[in-house]
């Protein structure tokens, strides 16, 4: 059962600025005793879980894999199985190249490369959270490489909140046809 208050909190969670989803959660449940009561209800907590998941997926929140020691950008495709051998080989090569690029340009960036159907999907995210100085930022991009095309979307979000609330949201789409040399086999 969806409650109107639960729906509003879900919306707030989805709109959390970089690195502050738990602040938004705490603020929301602290808002009224009534809400605290609601959140104590197991059913209501369960209702908020999809909002956390959706936020983490859309914002490419890095997660630690249970059986690995490194962080991977986005839970989005972490579970996607890869089977095709050629594609897996290509994925590995791209993964290595993207990781090098990210370490060269992102002071704290994380990248992940996945095989999705016949395509290669690349996610890159750079986060900086500085709550002591009241600012935070995230630059994230997602790319889909098909046989002859590379489509991408780049999003920047910057939040400054000392004696105010200033946010920059910027978004750019990219669509490039690739020369035949790079055609995937």
């Amino acid at each position: 059962m969806q409650s109107a208050k639960g729906e509003i909190i879900q919306e707030f969670l989805l709109n959390s600025p970089p690195g502050q989803v738990s602040d938004v959660y705490n603020g929301s449940i602290g808002l009224t005793k009534d809400i605290r009561g609601i959140v104590d209800d197991k059913e209501e907590i369960a209702q908020l879980v999809p909002a956390f998941e959706a936020h983490n997926k859309v914002q490419l929140i890095p997660i630690k894999l249970p059986d690995a020691d490194y962080e991977t950008a986005t839970k989005a495709d972490a579970d996607a199985p890869t089977f095709d051998e050629k594609l897996t080989k290509l994925r590995n090569a791209i993964d290595e190249a993207v990781a090098e690029y990210v370490s060269n340009y992102y002071p704290s960036g994380i990248s992940s490369v996945f095989v999705s159907e016949d395509n290669i999907v690349i996610h890159i995210v750079g986060n900086k959270y500085n709550p002591n100085n009241f600012w935070a930022g995230r630059l994230r991009s997602s790319w889909r490489l098909s046989k002859s095309n590379l489509k991408g979307s780049i999003k920047a979000q910057i939040h400054y909140y000392e004696d105010g609330n200033v946010q920059l949201n910027s978004h750019k789409e990219s669509d490039t046809d690739l020369p035949s040399v790079v055609v995937l086999e």
């Binding site: 707030f12 600025p17 938004v24 939040h159 609330n165 200033v166």
Partner: peptide
């Protein structure tokens, strides 16, 4: 606190 975090 929420209002200084949610999109202005």
């Amino acid at each position: 606190d929420l209002l200084r975090r949610l999109p202005p």
